[in-house]
């Protein structure tokens, strides 16, 4: 199993304690194309944060590729996020004052890859996404679909084992949504990237191989 979660609990203590995740058990294998569904407040975002090592959990065990992910130092966590996980966000989260190609280069910059090499690789990935001509443009000069393609290129450039997508089509119109979903499916099929999509949109979930419903902090099926 690539990802394994055993009895994950998470409580937020801001004011009234809020028990968000109440014992999550979940395994996802390499190459799976999974969607996590749930209404807002169900805990799906918290689960995504934990899967992406953006946040800590209180009790339980989380393994990536057999390695326990718990009490990591900031450096180690950063390293995992950089090399093992690729993020795709609903609001794209490109850095506004950097061009498309610079945005795509950024994860490699944090790996210490030389400038020239990472530039070439970034252009290659933009090409793969079909937006090479937009390499020198800033995010605010691009459409939503183009921005999401840049974000996907940025997520893929480090060859991560897992792609975590948080409502990747949430800010896109339906036509562009379909294009982006097709792209993700293709990546899953051809590059064997494990794809986890968090969404509340049933149409998006329909296109995945496996649907995980989370409700009130526990997995309803999966």
């Amino acid at each position: 199993m690539l990802l394994e979660l055993h009895d994950i609990n998470k409580t937020y203590f801001s004011g009234q304690p809020l028990h968000v995740l109440k014992g999550i058990n979940l395994s996802i294998d390499t190459g799976e194309f999974v969607s996590i569904m749930g209404s807002s407040g169900s805990g799906k975002s918290t689960l995504l944060n934990i899967l992406g090592i953006l946040d800590n959990y209180d009790t339980g065990e989380y393994y990536i590729d057999g390695k326990l992910i718990k009490n990591l130092s900031e450096r180690q966590a950063a390293d995992y996020r950089n090399r093992t996980i690729g993020f795709i966000f609903q609001s794209f989260n490109l850095i506004g004052f950097k061009t498309a190609v610079e945005n795509v280069e950024l994860p490699l910059f944090y790996q210490g890859v030389p400038r020239k090499k990472r530039h070439e690789l970034a252009l290659e990935y933009l090409d793969k996404m079909g937006i090479r001509d937009w390499a020198q443009h800033y995010p605010n000069e691009m459409s939503g679909g183009q921005k999401q393609r840049v974000a996907i290129a940025r997520a893929l450039i480090t060859h991560p084992r897992i792609i975590l997508a948080d409502e990747p089509t949430g800010a896109l119109d339906s036509k562009t949504s379909n294009e982006v979903m097709e792209l993700l499916k293709e990546l899953n099929r051809e590059e064997k990237v494990t794809m986890i999509i968090v969404t509340h949109d049933p149409k998006v979930a329909e296109q995945t191989d496996r649907k995980i419903h989370i409700s009130d902090g526990i997995i309803a099926n999966g």
Partner: peptide, 15 residues
């Protein structure tokens, strides 16, 4: 927000 993004894609605190 920008620093959050940087960290999410692998920036270490020292960076």
């Amino acid at each position: 927000h920008e620093f959050g993004i940087r960290k999410a894609i692998g920036a270490k605190p020292a960076d």
